[in-house]
Design a protein around this nucleic acid. Sequence first.
RNA 1: CGGGCUGUAGCGCAGCUUGGUUAGCGCGCUUGUCUGGGGGACAAGAGGUCGCGAGUUCGAAUCUCGCCAGCCCGACCA
Length: 589
Amino acid sequence: MLRMSKLFLRTLRDDPSDAEVPSHRLLVRAGYIRRAAPGGFTWLPLGWMTYRKVEDIIRDEMNKAGFQEVHFPALLPREPYEATGRWTEYGPNLFRLKDRRDNDFLLAPTHEEMFTLIVRDLFSSYRDLPLSIYQIQTKYRDEARPRAGLLRGREFVMKDSYSFDVDDEGLESSYNRHREAYISTFDRLQLPYVIVSAMSGAMGGSASEEFLAPIDVGEDTFVQCTSCGYAANTEAVNVAVSKPTDAVHPDALVVDTPDTPTIDTLVSHLNSAADTQQPDHQWASEDTLKNVLLNLVHPDGRIEPLAIGIPGNREVDLKRVEAQVAPAEPIPFTDADFAAHPTLIKGYIGPKAVGVDSPSGIRYLVDPRVVHGTAWVTGANSPGHHVINLVCGRDFTPDGTIEAAEVLEGDPCSNCGSAMTIARGIEIGHIFQLGRKYATALDLKVLDAEGQQITVTMGSYGIGVSRAVAAIAESHHDENGLCWPRAVAPADIHLVIAGKDDGPQRPAAETLAAELEAAGVAVLFDDREGVSPGVKFKDAELIGIPTIVIVGRGITDGLVEVKDRLTGERSDLPIGEVTAHLLALVQAP
RNA sequence: CGGGCUGUAGCGCAGCUUGGUUAGCGCGCUUGUCUGGGGGACAAGAGGUCGCGAGUUCGAAUCUCGCCAGCCCGACCA
């Protein structure tokens, strides 16, 4: 039993000024967590109990699925990460430090290397596989900008699993077992989620999905099809592509378009100038082909310029580009870059100035909607001039396609063509098939049935444990405070004495509390003296235990009040029946 | 890493423009009395390196410079 008279807790009447998102605000106000470092939080008793409930559910589901728990150090030597290249590739987000003999160490941001190495050390036969092992561990990332409390810290807890299989079918099966385990886990945590297609990114590999809790404060943007259920992180969306057309277009024609360096100015010029006006059709921004230049910075420092052609009604989405070109990093051209490429006229760049066979030699990739037979208005590579009716495949041929254009609300689904919606989400889980990248780099092989060495294929699966606590808070609160799902609440029942300190309420509540505890119900007992009922009620709502029991003025008639935190529904029950009633509530599935 | 805002008691804030006794208010905390179903009242208290460091000045919370930290937007982010 937790007695509030003794509990290490102080609730705050005002919102902390540095907290913006609800989970951060309420967890601090209700006395669950406290900021201790940039991006680091102390868990106070109520918070730690909730955290442990979440962790236990995750652990339980992992164990049920047959995965085995291990535990690595967070402090690791440089060598394994050197072997996979991540010591440098991980960049500034890696916490690096030195010991007294000047050896390099790091605080692990994730543990692929260590898991791979330990399996290599212990196992050497296909008969040992498949294997899935996991840990629940504190991770460190030197985030440029920790924010939103627990949602993005520099120190956080993650459950990370790794699967090891001899072939692709095995990997597929391990992947699906994790997917199922994640579904059960998030269902138990009562976290709403959408499973979206994701990029496997620099990690390599193929299949990759994210579990996103659809909450506006989330940092990921995803699309969802209103009809077929397709969902994807915007980084991973494939645009719906029209078929190549056989339409016959007039010859390409260069027209004077003075002072039209932007799509807007170009479109309004086309619609007003005598030589370009069309009787039956207003020019629109989607008729234009916008050519944007980027520099790709490769991990080895090499810089490669890249030209991207997209419909003029859209912007380039750098996140999407990065997902395509990883591990290279895309950076927009600066004025200095344009100066270094005098054949590229900013605002008037056309397909003829770019492409590997052009004078510039710059690789030219276009949006997949720019297909054979489509006609475009685009730059004529001369200030104040554009060309109309420039036909892809006839007048120019790009070097390839790239998913670079921003995704807009209402865009057609690439699967079924229906309109897609866009929403934000918190990434609460990520599962993906790593393949053989780490096994190859660290030489993880086993003998197959024929006695041949084969490289193991791996999967990697993460759940942010501390982030899950915040995500639950984000999806389970109201203006008065938290409303925990029963499975993760720090106690089952919040029992409040509402009466004079020497009134009959106290002995009745004490008896009830003892009875509940004896029946196995975890009670947070507000037995504080000299605290008015109003204060206790406010605290109870802030703290958010799902059922609040009030021993108050009804006690003279032998009644206590049972209140549902979420619905506000209340009922008076004879004190003799309360324990059975609450027990049923708590044990309800 | 760029732009904007901010840093004064556990929490929320005023004071800074125009430098000047002992830095103030509300909440919270301590003691007492009253109160006792929605953060109650009165009284008396405790609690501060004014983010840190230099500088200007007879004198700096206040002015200048540098740094650090926080929040928001963007960049970044298996």
